[in-house]
Design a protein around this nucleic acid. Structure first.
Lengths: 218, 218
DNA sequence: TCTAAAGTGAGCAAAACAGAACAGTTTTCT
DNA sequence: AGAAAACTGTTCTGTTTTGCTCACTTTAGA
């Protein structure tokens, strides 16, 4: 019964290939993995591409909770006790390749394979900490500081292979949704940052270290 | 080596008693479990009492992230890869009894005992979802709605043994810290709620279901 | 029991913000 | 290439929120 007793279990291999209760799916840019209100009966492991998690409020306002990249899990709310509903919508930003794992299979494997539950736990811990940091940021800071912080965080987001400080293409609308303000406000601050030399952009945004001054200094 | 192969492992028993790498501690009301900036080398399992998690900003403003009760873990950031620092301060609200588990021991047990890692995973998932909901609330709603929501959530907080809708004693200051506004603003809204009959209070706060109207209706 | 500390209710000016509008620019699709 | 859609910079108005201050009440501790 326990796989680990007979064969060596490799979480990387598990998350890279199809199998019982799991298969590889491709999601085109702007298509959704799942939408808010859907039944939460599976979890995705993002192999390639970028995606985002958004929520819409009662009166149609939209908020972006987080951006997701390769190695992230999507839809972990499916693993709670009872089968519930999706609380957010997961949308592909670029074309994505992901492993779709059925709820039962994921629960089983997490239960039986330490190595995989380690991977998952690490992800969940990191995510939980990041969201908590976002909440704290929201509680403490003004829109301007929140924008500065998000820009700095995203400058790291692109792997340290690229000439860092170059931010993946993103619209002011999405930035506004992430920091909880309006698009016009983002536009206003972006230009202020640019005037002060904290950032520069023609097409994509390049963040200068000096932007830290906005976040750090009172 | 693997405990589960020889003896039956009982997570409830583990979390209820002292042992190797873990011991029971008592924390008086207003004393701290740990403070922001401390080395994160252990995790607590709260057996009895109530506690809160707070963060202070650069310029001394304070935010309350969450309230904690029996069955909650405190200080899970200690389980991330490298040994880091506490990102928040955990303070006892009432006298607390908790199991203090050393980082290494917790990592070991989570790794070796499915039943405990299940318990921990469930906690982490719930917490992560709750904090995400708080973030969404913060992104969408006005101070007034946030206050209404927190009050409603806390009305559930007291176990369904008590005549529910009676909120555990809490100051306006703490409420203000939780929803990210000023104390005077909380005072203002509380009186408005009271005038409309949504809540009543002499010493402790009693929440009426009608308060839902504030949260739900546009 | 008395006093200091903590908590509460109010009010006000200044700052931050939302929301809408509109023209100009860039992307995307056919 | 040309039209439609998406994105950006900017302005304006009214609202919300902050950051105080002060008087009063309740609570906790010596």
């Amino acid at each position: 019964m326990l796989r680990s007793e007979s064969t060596k279990f490799d979480p990387a291999a598990f998350l890279a290939s199809a199998g019982l209760g799991r298969r590889i799916v491709r999601v085109k840019a702007k298509d959704v993995f799942f939408a808010q209100g859907n039944t939460a009966d599976c979890i995705f492991y993002l192999q390639a591409g970028r995606a985002k998690l958004t929520v819409v409020s009662a009166r149609g306002k939209e908020a972006t909770i987080t951006l997701l990249g390769p190695g992230d899990f999507i839809g972990e709310e499916s693993l709670t006790g009872a089968v519930g509903l999706r609380m957010a919508t997961a949308t592909a930003i670029t074309a994505c390749t992901a492993l779709k794992i059925e709820r039962e299979e994921m629960v089983r494997v997490i239960h039986e394979e330490h190595t995989l539950s380690d991977v998952f736990l690490k992800f969940l811990l990191a995510r939980s900490i990041r969201i908590q940091a976002d909440l704290v940021d929201q509680l403490f800071n003004s829109s301007e500081k929140r924008l500065a912080r998000i820009l700095l965080l995203m400058a790291e987001f692109g792997q340290p292979g690229e000439p860092e400080s170059l931010i993946p293409k993103i619209t002011q609308e999405t930035l506004a949704e992430m920091i909880g303000t309006t698009r016009s406000r983002v536009s206003f601050f972006m230009n202020r940052f640019r005037k002060h030399g904290f950032i520069e952009y023609n097409g994509r945004i390049r963040v200068h270290k000096s932007l830290l001054n906005i976040v750090l200094h009172d």
